[in-house]
Design a protein around this nucleic acid. Structure first.
Ligand SMILES: [Mn+2]
Ligand SMILES: [Mn+2]
Ligand SMILES: [Zn+2]
Ligand SMILES: [Zn+2]
Lengths: 152, 152
DNA sequence: GTGGTTGATGATAATACTTATCATTAACCA
DNA sequence: TGGTTAATGATAAGTATTATCATCAACCAC
């Protein structure tokens, strides 16, 4: 299941970066974690919990480098802080539960096509887009919480 | 063209807020400005330039209050800072030029419908969404700049 | 209109997230 | 197996935003 460290080293190397231990550990974390979407702080705490000695500055640097190397992708989810996820090629957008923070992924080819059309009509060369849906998921606890909030 | 200050006072009052001079000036700015989308800093500098004495903390506070009162809406545009615009009822999304920062607005009913459908299928009660398209606008200067950047 | 109550203001401190600096360390390659 | 050069980590700095608190001004009852 887990790729051996040498494979991670390969991926990192072929992005033109030295295969250092912090980089290997960060990439491995994204490949192994169940929670796909991680902030810098998430990565930091996770590696500390694993007994690694790593600086927060290194996390931020490496996440940025991995994004530029297209090993990771970055999103905002309107939370004020960036989250990253493994880039596995196929584009998708996100559906976020405002109560529990759960993130589901989707890709709708029709929406993608319409976006392209809108940009073209206005003479824009479309480079990227951010689409996030926010709502309340099917978890009964989330629905109860939502009802409680709407009362106040 | 300009609403009289008393009208702004009305709008503010009916949101349950005292019609103070800073609030009146901030609301007026959004009603009069040509550049629809303004950050807290934009508002601050604009009012200072108009000779107002106003604190930045007040700007932040009032923008938040106006958003809660649905007089303004907030967006992020992936810039790391929030921008606000007058809420005139009809929802729309944004197309942003990555070279000059120009913002165009659009609303595609088909995309709206598909979003709703995606949320429903997954058992989410959709509350809101953020859709922003990023690209290069038709301005020749922007296209030249984009070409220059892609070379490096 | 006036005055008292109460919420608003603005200076500034604090916080949250992120990037820059720089001396030390480690990856790579000849 | 060094030497070169880039990476690391501690920490300072930067940027956007929120909290604190003493002073001030809207509003409402009179
Ligand atoms: Mn994702
Ligand atoms: Mn807009
Ligand atoms: Zn939920
Ligand atoms: Zn442009």
């Amino acid at each position: 299941m887990h790729k051996p460290a040498s494979d991670n080293a390969q991926d990192i190397h072929s992005s033109g970066l030295k295969a250092t231990w912090p980089r290997i550990r960060i990439l491995r974390l994204f490949q192994q974690t169940t929670q796909r979407h991680l902030s810098a702080e998430d990565v930091y705490r996770s590696l500390l919990a694993d007994g690694e000695e790593i600086g927060l500055a290194t996390i931020y640097r490496v996440l940025t480098q991995f994004e530029q190397a297209r090993l990771l992708t970055r999103h905002y989810f309107e939370s004020g802080k960036a989250v990253y996820e493994l880039n596995e090629g196929q584009h998708h957008d996100h559906l976020v539960c405002m109560m529990c923070g759960r993130v589901e992924e989707f890709c709708d080819p029709e929406i993608e096509r319409l976006q392209q059309q809108i940009a073209e009509r206005r003479g824009f060369e479309l480079r990227e887009h951010a689409l996030s849906l926010y709502g309340v998921c099917s978890n009964p606890a989330c629905q109860a919480k939502a009802r409680a909030e709407s009362r106040g």
